[in-house]
Simulated scan of single mutants.
Amino acid sequence: MRHVSTSSPLSPAVDELWERRAELSPADVDARNVVVGAVDLLDRGEARAARPAGDDVVVDERARRAILLSFTVLGMARSQVGDFQHHDRHPLKSSFDGVRVVPGAIARWGSYLAPGVVLMPSFTDIGAYVDAGTTVGTWATVGSCAQIGRNVHLSGGTGIGGVLEPPGAVPVVVEDDVLIGNRAMIVDGARVGQGAVVGAGTILSGSTPVLDVRTGEEIARGRIPARCVAVGGTRQKEFPGGTFGLPCVLVLHHLQPGQRHDKAALDEVLREHGVNT
């Protein structure tokens, strides 16, 4: 998965501020106005830190710079929601048109939540993009700049990693119609293809080998293919000190184009392979 830069809807003034970022502080009102305006565009979904484009991920480096600059030009401020007090440089998100936000859910300003999103008690970080119809389950985390597609279900405790640095780092991408099981972790620029089901407890990083159990062949690293059932596993590797199991992701089943998983079919696939997720 390649990183591809793109033209940005954000002001070029962000780049000028980035070049002299060491000189900036919350006292720089003009700089703060530029950065706040840029992050407001992310908050409304009019700009995105990244977007999938075929096999590539198009990254808006200016958007990421604006987020990083916000830590410099915004001062610490106290806020309160009910009995809970916060002390941070970034306010909480305040625009939730068409979004269901269950008490205990936290979304930071600069994250975008499309109409139809449901937030259970969870955390969505600045720069994240969560598309329509997606559910972010209880205690799930959507990290900074992560890109979550339509009609995705992030089950309880799911961890979607964030990335702001270094320059050129690719955010996590979860494509449309994906189901990610409880306590699964998708981190370090990994990608989950459209319609995939990821078993509970699976850990996928950008360098995790993804293997097809039918052939034993490595399909990819850090990428679960579209329309498949995948679970966490190990594969044996010889070292001078002995044979050890290294983590991998196992693809158990592929759907034909146009097919979608249903609960009965998924349970049958898992039983077939002796997997309980």
Score class of each variant (00 low, 15 high):
84 F>N: 11
44 R>Y: 14
33 N>F: 11
264 A>W: 02
47 A>S: 05
145 C>N: 14
29 V>K: 06
140 A>V: 02
91 P>A: 07
207 S>T: 13
76 M>C: 03
104 G>Q: 12
192 V>G: 10
238 E>P: 14
220 A>G: 06
205 S>E: 05
17 L>G: 03
51 R>Q: 05
26 P>C: 03
14 V>G: 01
80 Q>C: 14
38 A>H: 00
136 V>I: 02
110 G>Y: 13
117 V>E: 08
126 I>S: 08
175 E>N: 15
152 V>D: 13
128 A>D: 10
253 H>D: 10
143 G>T: 06
124 T>G: 07
155 S>W: 07
234 T>H: 04
79 S>C: 01
115 P>S: 03
262 D>V: 12
198 V>R: 06
60 D>Y: 04
100 R>H: 06
84 F>V: 12
203 I>V: 13
111 S>L: 01
223 R>D: 15
102 V>I: 11
144 S>G: 14
140 A>R: 14
76 M>P: 02
75 G>N: 10
148 I>Q: 05
188 D>F: 14
247 P>H: 06
75 G>S: 13
32 R>H: 08
8 S>I: 00
171 P>L: 04
205 S>F: 04
46 E>T: 08
96 F>K: 06
84 F>S: 11
43 D>V: 02
58 V>R: 15
114 A>Q: 12
33 N>H: 07
40 D>N: 09
189 G>S: 04
146 A>G: 13
121 P>A: 00
194 Q>R: 06
70 S>L: 04
270 L>S: 09
63 A>N: 02
88 D>G: 09
41 L>G: 09
23 E>K: 02
25 S>D: 15
138 T>H: 11
277 T>C: 10
129 Y>S: 15
257 P>A: 14
67 I>K: 05
10 L>A: 02
207 S>Y: 13
56 D>Q: 11
232 G>V: 05
250 L>G: 05
124 T>V: 15
150 R>C: 10
259 Q>R: 04
168 G>L: 03
51 R>K: 04
229 V>I: 11
128 A>V: 00
145 C>D: 11
159 G>I: 07
99 V>T: 01
125 D>Y: 13
172 V>M: 02
40 D>I: 05
66 A>L: 03
130 V>S: 14
138 T>G: 12
57 V>R: 13
189 G>K: 01
68 L>A: 11
166 P>V: 03
218 E>D: 15
215 T>E: 00
197 V>M: 15
252 L>I: 06
16 E>F: 01
34 V>K: 02
69 L>K: 00
274 G>L: 01
247 P>N: 03
127 G>I: 00
21 R>N: 03
23 E>T: 07
9 P>Y: 10
39 V>T: 07
111 S>Y: 07
